[in-house]
Amino acid sequence: MSESAAMPEGAIVLDHVTKSYGDRVILDDVSCSIPSGQTTVLLGPSGTGKSTLIRLAVGLAAQEKGDVIVLGKNVQSLERKELLKLRQRFGMLFQDGALFGSISVADNIGFPLKHVAKKPAPEVDARVQELLELVGLPGVGGRTPDALSGGQRKRVALARAIALEPEIVFFDEPTSGLDPQTSASIDALINEMQARLGLSFVVITHDVQSAGAIAHQVGMLFGGKLLAYGPKDEVFASTDPTVRGFLDREPNL
């Protein structure tokens, strides 16, 4: 990755990162710098390691080689206490939501507000209502997550991820399982928040159209390698056959 060297100090920097499970190499010597204050979209076929890349960035998994630097800190070398502290500056939407099954939707969204920011209850309640309306789900706060549809759960998880307006928000497929209109509103929500608060977003998606709508930067993972990485227009204009095949939806099986 020659571009990465030229890129200034990023919110997240991957430096020659290699990650395997067993003897299967998932990420193979990946380097890039994800700029702060922008939306970076990761594209790539199913099973190439997009979620894995995010897990490395938040310190849920460890790479064998290379460094992952987030907000200026080397994630792998942090003490556990420091890591927990660093993570309080993150928000994350998990691919399957990871909502807490035993508490209500409202308590799920209020969780980081109450336990991380230690906000008083009335303030938490007000913010939760605001967030529920933001994701188009007013009035479901009292239900438990298993009484929601798949798409509704996703939106609740999104509300929880952005509740604290953290410096970096990771979205693992925020729009999968949603209808095109709701997807478009989520995209608009991401754009609006990004513009208003200048946060850094890292978004994994399979939806090329949605990537076009929100991305400043685009990275494409193929077979453990970052095949293309750079400003959206550059990547979308790429002539690399693999990249083109993905963007133009050519069958690959």
Binding site: R55, V58, G59, L60, L84, K85, L86, R87, Q88, R89, F90, G91, M92, F94, D96, A98, L99, F100, G101, S102, F111, P112, H115, V116, F170
Partner: peptide, 19 residues
């Protein structure tokens, strides 16, 4: 209970919140 939270990534979610 903890096993179910682990496999549905609820424990990871706590970790990422810094809790």
């Amino acid at each position: 209970a903890l096993g179910a939270m682990r496999v549905s990534q609820q424990i990871d979610a706590l970790e990422v919140m810094g809790i």
